[in-house]
Simulated assay, not measured.
Amino acid sequence: MTQIRTLTDDERWQIAMAKDRRFDGAFVTGVHSTGIYCRPSCPARAPLRKNVKFYATAEDAEAVGLRACKRCSPNTQSAEEACVLAAIAAIRADGAMTLDQLADLTGYSPTHFQRLFKRTVGLSPAAFARALREEKVRGALEGGASVTDALYEAGYSAPSRFYAETKGKLGMTASDWRDGGKGRVVHWSVVATSLGDMLVAATEKGVCCLAFNEGEEELRARFPKAELVEAGAEFRALFDQVVAAVEEPSSDNSHIPLDVKGTAFQQRCWQALREIPAGETRSYGEQAAMLGNPKASRAVGSANGANNIAVLIPCHRVVPASGGVGGYAYGPGIKAELLKRESEG
C-alpha cells in the first residue's frame, strides 16, 4: 500500500504550540488529562505532549468522550466568525458596501475588520465582492443571458470594468462562458502513457483538458460548442511536456501553460493545489485552511471535482483526513500510482 503523507502529529503539535488560527477547522487537539478538545489556536496554557491526541473533527473527539473547550468553543462559531458571516451576507445583498460600512455593521474598526475578514476568508472584502460579481456574470451567461445584460445585472458599471478585473486569470472570456466555447478551437489527441490512454487538449493559450481513459466524446461534453481539431505537429512539443509530467509527476511542471475555466473560488482552490509540493498530500480541511477558510472543506471538495486538468492541477494530492487514498475521477489505482511516483521522485 502506498504511504500517504498528511500532516504528522508532530506538525500538528507545532501548529498548536504556535496557536496558528489558519488551521482552525483542519483538526482539533484532544487533551485527555482534562477530557477536553480545542481549536489549534486555543489561547489556553499548553498541555503536556504526552496527554494530547489529534482528531480530524469535533465529532471524532466527542466520540471518544471528550467535551468542547469553553474558552475556544471548537464546536461553535466565534464572535469574529459570526461577524465575518454577517459581512458576507451583507456583501451578497449589496456588493457596493464600503469597508467603513462593513466595519460599522460588525462593530470593528475598518483596519481590524479588514485583517479579520482576509484572515478568515482569504480575500479582502473588496476582492470578495469582485469574486461574487464575477460568479454572478458566469451564472447569468451560462443561463443564456446576453453578455451586456449579465455584466450590468452583476453590478458592473461598464463591460470594460469586468474585463479589467478578470484579465489574465479566466482564460476564457465572458462570451466563451455563455457560448460553451463557441468560436474557440480546441486541439486534442489521445496519447499512450504508462497509466493508460490519456486525453490531452489545448487552446492557443494552453492546456485546457487532461483526462485518463477519455476521448473525443467526453471532450465534446466538456466544450460543447468549441471546434475540436485533432492536434497537429505544432502541438507536439506541448503534448510531450504533458506526457513527461505524467510519467514523472515529481518534476516541476509550472512552465506548462494552462487555459482553465472555473469560478473565482474554483480557481483559488486549483491554485492552492498547485502549491502543494510533489510528494506531499493535504486533507480537504487542510486545503481549505490554505485558503483561509478551514470550514469550507466540502466546497473545496466540489471545486477539486470540477477540475478538468488532471496532474497539472494536482487534485490527486488531496486525501481523506481519516487515511487512505480516497476517491478520484479516474480511479484510485491511478491516484495511488501518481502519489507513489511523486514520493519516490
Rank of each mutant, 00 (worst) to 15 (best):
T29C: 14
R39I: 02
A16I: 01
K70M: 08
T29R: 13
V31L: 04
T34N: 05
Q77K: 06
A44F: 00
G65P: 10
D20E: 12
V28Q: 03
C42E: 11
A63L: 00
G25Y: 09
C38E: 06
A18I: 03
P74R: 04
E80D: 13
S73K: 13
N75W: 05
Q14K: 13
M17L: 15
A44P: 00
T76V: 06
I36T: 11
C42T: 09
A82K: 13
D60Y: 12
S41W: 00
L85E: 15
Y55G: 02
E59D: 14
A44I: 06
P40D: 09
Q14W: 00
V64K: 00
D20S: 03
E81P: 11
V31E: 12
G25W: 07
E81D: 14
V28P: 05
V31N: 14
P47N: 10
P43L: 07
C83T: 03
N51V: 04
R45A: 14
T29E: 12
E81Q: 15
P43G: 10
A79P: 11
G30K: 03
M17V: 13
Q14S: 13
I36D: 05
R12V: 01
A26H: 05
A56Y: 09
I88F: 01
W13N: 02
T29H: 07
H32M: 05
A16H: 13
K19Q: 15
V52T: 05
A82R: 15
T29N: 08
S78F: 06
D24P: 09
Q77Y: 06
C42S: 10
G25L: 06
C72P: 11
Y37H: 13
R71D: 10
F23G: 02
R21F: 01
S41Q: 01
G25R: 04
K53F: 04
R49D: 06
R22T: 06
Q77S: 07
R49Y: 10
I15H: 00
G30C: 08
R71L: 13
F23A: 03
A56H: 12
T76F: 08
F23L: 12
T57K: 09
D20F: 02
R12Y: 05
T57D: 13
F23R: 03
Q14E: 15
G65I: 04
T57A: 10
T57C: 12
D60I: 00
G30M: 02
P74A: 11
V52I: 12
K53A: 14
A61I: 05
P40T: 05
F54W: 06
C42V: 07
A68D: 11
G35D: 10
S78N: 09
K70V: 11
A46Q: 11
C38M: 02
R39N: 14
C69S: 11
A26M: 05
S41E: 03
A16Y: 15
L48E: 14
A18N: 12
V64W: 01
S78Q: 09
A87K: 02
A58M: 07
V64C: 05
D60R: 03
Q77C: 01
A61W: 11
A82S: 14
Q77G: 03
R45C: 02
V52F: 14
R45P: 06
R67I: 07
L48V: 10
C72Q: 04
P43H: 13
A58S: 15
R45G: 12
